[in-house]
Amino acid sequence: MTVNAIQGKRKWEPYIWLLPSIVLIAIFVVFPILIVFKLSFSEISQGGVVGGFIGFQNYTEAVRLPAFKTVMLNTLWWVLSVVGLSTVLGFIVALVLNQKFRGRKIARSILVFPWATSLVIQASVWNYIIKYEYGSLNNVLLNLGIINQAINWRSSYTVEFIWECGVGIFVTVPFVAFCVLSGLQSIDGSLYEAATVDGAGFWDKLWNITLPLVRPSLTVSTVLNIIYVFNSFPIVYTMTKGAPAHKTDTMITYLYMLSFYERKKGPATALSVIGFLILCVCAGVYMMGVMRKEEEQ
């Protein structure tokens, strides 16, 4: 066999190795997405039977729904608060866990629990914790004498939505912390030693050494979190089911209610496509911004 023939064969080798993944992605990711796109332009009956092409009718119906604006704003707040705050808190937790102290291994193990537990269980447990009548939070505060009478921790839908965001942050922080921790552990300690010799303080080292070097880890965790949090269903559905009157719904829970409670499957499918496109744009813009910055540096 000639060298050229061997090189020609080698040229195809990576694609052959990639083929199983490509086939799986095509079947389980690309194909369903294409189906949803097709459905969003089709008439769908209450019973779920797919009819003919109806253009953008499902989209116009979806954006004219009374709850559309509220749900979009909720989704924006939900993603910004959960991704933003969990990134900041996760970063701080990672910095702490990167220090040497007694019980560090145990602390790292405990941190996994909120992330590893099912979201439905997490949301249900928090539901019990903040319950007015028999909730653990009220019980603890009453027993400690901090309060004289039980507090209604769910006194308005704004407060309920804040609780949902809080639970979202609680379960997302560990993921960010571990991503950042992996980045922190790859930083050469001599960089900090050199900076210390040069008279750099804590903030100087954080800003000029730590942050630039963990940026790839933060990028990964942020992009993944934007996708996970945007698509997160269990927390909102378990805690409020969007009540009252969709005031605590996010896009994902709302389109579920629309499809399976109100049986408006056409607009629900259109909403899911809108959500997919928003997600693609947000994740894409963020990725491009970060990559451009890295190239500049």
């Binding site: 209450q46 009252p244 009157a245 969709h246 005031k247 209610m257 409670y261 109100e262 049986r263 408006k264």
Partner: peptide, 13 residues
């Protein structure tokens, strides 16, 4: 199905 959810939404509103 629409009525069922509709009256619930009116109550919650």
């Amino acid at each position: 199905a629409q009525v069922r959810q509709g009256v619930t939404t009116v109550e919650q509103e």
